[in-house]
Design a protein around this nucleic acid. Structure first.
Lengths: 225, 225
DNA sequence: TGTACATCAGTGAACGCGCGTTCACTGATGTAC
DNA sequence: TGTACATCAGTGAACGCGCGTTCACTGATGTAC
């Protein structure tokens, strides 16, 4: 019971409440903690909100501790961006998973393409900050510390390729039309997503955006071949 | 000849060179000068580069002078954004102007749509900073001082509507398909533009982007109806 | 199993910077008489 | 035509802020013996 007082002291009550303090000198998992903090900031405020000092604050660590794990702020942002892309890919995969297998290969292919597009769009609407971060302007020149570029699993682009391959294999897409079809299909939903998040269209209600998305997917199907 | 010395003195040589000084107390056209400076910064560095203090520096005016013409930095950015949209519209109109009139209304309509899409894309490639600024995230809440919203001429959206109207009037588009076609058509080229400027596709050569743009326009034509 | 030591993840303090914004002011201009 | 004066576009100085980054350091950990 009296150990309470000691805990009280340890938790550092100076200034406002809620300032906690690590009990170990080593953090143990600081790199991941910084990325997680950066991701949360990106989620709320987009790429510009990924502030190195704030990340260290949230990880309860001094500002310069970040430099043990990242060469600079750009490297941290890059790691966060990469994580955002992974989340987007996961959202798409989940949407694809929902569309059963389907026996007819053509129906399956169409469903796959639709799932990629709609999963993409849904993620953009649900997590605009992460989405914008995933596609924020790339580092101009440097960003020395970007080891984790690859990560695991397929990225959004590869998932789209997969769906388009199914379209081709099931005979819905000629070999000629298949060429560069990724870029065309991707552009459509990406454009809608960005217009819905920012710029003149950002007041469109979500349902409307999703309905437009459905129409876009159909348009792509018809327009590609 | 000896007046040179006086001029020398007037031009204020302290510190580096090239620092000039206005001779009149009143600037005369400060608001426009600030927007012009902001526009140039946006052109080079995108929306984040529109810095109020830097704009006043370029207008050779003290920082707080800006507050005679804009309520705050957001208001200046908003004026710059509006100007970027105008420039985009002008680029599209120019592209439309290049496509002669054509006697066949259907050919004309197709050419119009193509011109809108390609003009849009070309502007995005040529002026990525302005393009990104035009579609940067809108002011969250305030921006009190945004008088010049309307400006003159048609905005990009209206130009696109015009082309789609021609499609409908010439019988290329049913009334049903015409509905919300703006959003669909716009999304495609907008998406390609943004992917080409940032994100994973930003290394695509310009010619390739334009070639994809041509395919997109065809896809939209076919897919819409 | 115990101890010396190298490693290196963290600390604490400080830096220079440039930003947006506010204050009390100054002085050119255009208008009323 | 000349003069007094209100207007208001500009000045100069200062503010608080938070950022990214560097410095010399400290102390826990894991390894070699």
């Amino acid at each position: 019971m009296f150990s309470l007082a000691i805990h009280f002291d340890e938790t550092d009550m100076k200034k406002s409440a809620s300032v906690q303090r690590r009990k170990t000198f080593r953090h143990g998992d600081l790199r991941n903690a910084l990325v997680a903090a950066g991701l949360e900031m990106a989620r709320v405020g987009g790429p510009d909100a990924v502030v190195l000092r704030e990340a260290t604050r949230r990880a309860m660590v001094s500002p310069n501790a970040a430099y043990r794990h990242f060469a600079n702020q750009a490297a941290l942002l890059d790691a966060v961006r990469s994580e955002c892309l992974s989340r987007l890919a996961a959202a798409i995969e989940e949407e694809m998973g929902k569309t059963g297998l389907g026996r007819d290969p053509q129906v399956f292919a169409r469903k796959s393409l639709r799932a990629v597009g709609m999963g993409y769009l849904r993620f953009a609407i649900k997590e605009p900050g992460m989405f914008r971060t995933a596609f924020s302007v790339p580092p101009a020149v440097d960003v020395p510390n970007s080891a984790n570029a690859a990560s695991m699993g397929l990225n959004p682009f590869e998932l789209l390729s997969l769906a388009l391959n199914r379209m081709q294999q099931s005979g819905l897409l000629s070999k000629k039309d298949r060429k560069d079809a990724e870029y065309l299909a991707w552009s459509t939903v990406h454009g809608l997503a960005r217009l819905a998040l920012e710029g003149p269209l950002h007041t469109l209600p979500n349902e409307k955006v999703l309905a437009l998305g459905e129409r876009l997917v159909v348009m792509v199907e018809r327009g590609l071949s």
